[in-house]
C-alpha cells in the first residue's frame, strides 16, 4: 500500500518534471520558461522527495528530506524571481519589444 503511494508521488513528481522540461523547451521566452521552472520543478522536487519521505518515514533521512523540501520551496521561487528580474532589464522578449515598455513604464 505504502509502496503504491510512494510510486504515485514519485511518478507524479517525474511527470511534473517532464512537463517542466517540455515547458522550458517549448515556451517562447525567458519569462514563460520561468513559469515552467518555478512551478513544475518546485512541485516535482517536492513530490519526489515527499515520496521518499513516505517511503522512509520520520527517520534522520526523512527529516533531511523534509528540510530539503522546505529549502527548495523557499529558494526556487526566489531564484526564478531574480532571473526574471535580471532578464527584465536586459532582454528583448519574444514579441520583439523591450519587456520594460510592455510593462507600461511609458
Amino acid at each position: 500500500m505504502r509502496e503504491i503511494i510512494v510510486m504515485i508521488f514519485l511518478f507524479g513528481g517525474v511527470f511534473f518534471f517532464t512537463v517542466g522540461t517540455i515547458g522550458v523547451l517549448r515556451l517562447p521566452d525567458v519569462f514563460c520558461r520561468l513559469h515552467a521552472n518555478t512551478k513544475s520543478d518546485t512541485l516535482g522536487v517536492g513530490l519526489v522527495l515527499a515520496s521518499l519521505v513516505i517511503y522512509e518515514g520520520l527517520s534522520s533521512a526523512g527529516v533531511k528530506l523534509i528540510f530539503m523540501i522546505i529549502f527548495i520551496w523557499i529558494t526556487n521561487p526566489t531564484a526564478g524571481h531574480i532571473i526574471a528580474r535580471a532578464s527584465y532589464d536586459t532582454i528583448v522578449d519574444w514579441t520583439g519589444q523591450l519587456a520594460r515598455q510592455k510593462a507600461g513604464e511609458d
Partner: peptide, 15 residues
Amino acid sequence: VAINMITSKTIAVMA
C-alpha cells in the same frame, strides 16, 4: 533557467 531545472532534477536524482 535550464541550469536551475537541472539543479532541482539533480537533487531529486541524488535523493
